[in-house]
């Protein structure tokens, strides 16, 4: 696979490490949320046949974490964003 890195252009997927569902960005606040919320965050994932937003780490490259929108049926990649931008847009900060 080729991943269109937003900064570096198309890069071979072999340069990346896959983590999984981009929902891992939405980590609960550990000072407020309890075990139930963390359990759901950590263990409950969707496994769609179709579009999936997932985290890839450019380990053999610039160390960016990316959110890649991929069709799990065709492997078509519809979008690749810097995870940092996605996290900021989702209200994550400090």
């Amino acid at each position: 696979m080729l991943i269109p890195h937003p900064l570096l252009g198309p890069r071979d997927a072999q340069e990346f490490v896959y983590l999984g569902d981009a929902a891992l960005i939405d980590r609960p606040d550990g000072t407020a949320a309890g075990i139930e919320a963390f359990h759901d965050y950590l263990y409950l994932r969707d496994n769609p046949a179709g579009q999936h937003r997932e985290l890839w780490y450019h380990e053999q490259g610039d160390r960016s974490w990316l959110v890649v929108t991929r069709d799990t049926v065709t492997h078509e990649i519809l979008k690749a964003e810097l995870a940092r931008d996605v996290a900021l847009a989702r209200g994550r900060g400090r």
């Binding site: 983590l19 891992l24 960005i25 995870a83 996290a87 994550r92 400090r94």
Partner: peptide, 19 residues
């Protein structure tokens, strides 16, 4: 060594991007 660094980058970029 490699896994910890990857994890720290995840925490920095995905969880607390404004730190």
């Amino acid at each position: 060594a490699v896994a910890v660094f990857r994890h720290l980058e995840f925490c920095r970029q995905c969880l607390w991007p404004a730190l």
